[in-house]
Design a protein around this nucleic acid. Sequence first.
DNA 1: CTTACCATGTAAGGCGTTACATGATTCA
DNA 2: TGAATCATGTAACGCCTTACATGGTAAG
Lengths: 181, 181
Amino acid sequence: MANEKKIDCVILGLLSHEVLTGYEIKKRMDTTLKYFWGASYGSIYPALNQLAQEELISKYEAKENGRDTIRYTINNSGREYLKQWLEVPVTKDEIRYETLLKLFFGSEIGGEKTSAHIERFEDKIEEELPVLKEMAANLEMVKGREEAHIYYLLTVKFGIKVYEAYMEWCKEAKQILKGRE
Amino acid sequence: MANEKKIDCVILGLLSHEVLTGYEIKKRMDTTLKYFWGASYGSIYPALNQLAQEELISKYEAKENGRDTIRYTINNSGREYLKQWLEVPVTKDEIRYETLLKLFFGSEIGGEKTSAHIERFEDKIEEELPVLKEMAANLEMVKGREEAHIYYLLTVKFGIKVYEAYMEWCKEAKQILKGRE
DNA sequence: CTTACCATGTAAGGCGTTACATGATTCA
DNA sequence: TGAATCATGTAACGCCTTACATGGTAAG
């Protein structure tokens, strides 16, 4: 029970909330989970097939709006597996900020060019922050309805807190670099 | 010039500051860079050999305190390579927070067990925050001496800002979960 | 004398992305 | 009619970690 593949756990988690297609799972990754996790089709589809083979999830092929689709549902064994993983303490949270890396070696290219990296970072955050805030507002309204909403809200609140810290840091960092010119 | 291996860039960056052994590079990763990057011996040593073969860095074998060591220095071509990479805009900052993932699916195991994840996360941050603050204090004192210090300080300040945001969020999150019991 | 640290590396295997391949439907 | 979106998948390849393998030195 030590080395679960993360992609399996994410998929099981998403299927524990809803019945989904592979395509929809990818969409969840790119919207809801994007602030702390990601995955590509190249890992999602093979994982779905493998999970189905192990009977942790079930496959339902159908024609929806003339399109061939495959919907997946979670089985009891899959829910068990998910629960067990959820109870194991986290071993590794990882960050790989290329921006910080480029910043760290900034003396090679100087303050102006380094500030440009900070600004691009800032722009991205500034763009995404309102999206997160809207998510939070929507969740605040419906949070009583479903148990899962509150947990979703917590992750969104995490995103907001962190993004706001990023914004503050960007301003400070640019100021410090400007003062040195 | 699009697809540089990150490990190469990190190594070149570290060698642009100091002459180092592979072992020392690993130590830098585990202390200075650990807040936004990581690497293992299994990627460091092969990368060093490859970079030496491409003559971006130079190898100096010696006996230090009776130990066989290999010191690496950066070459002009290596410094050029590093600079070029530093000027390219960042394409991907990635986060993989297993803690957030487990939180997101928290409804499966309930508020109490989810709070335990938050507390472990909090403990780790609480432990590392003073280390960062000390780093910052030390850097503030010596920052006039070397150009590179200021950039290093910026990354440390980033760490502090973010970690403080984490702490605030942890308190809030635990409160929210407690209110639901 | 034994534990921790210094020091260098390899091999196997896992995990995941990118790019490719295909084809239907919806919307402008 | 063409672009965007829905929908599923594979193959090649790259990158990295884990575990293993080895041996010297410093400190208690």
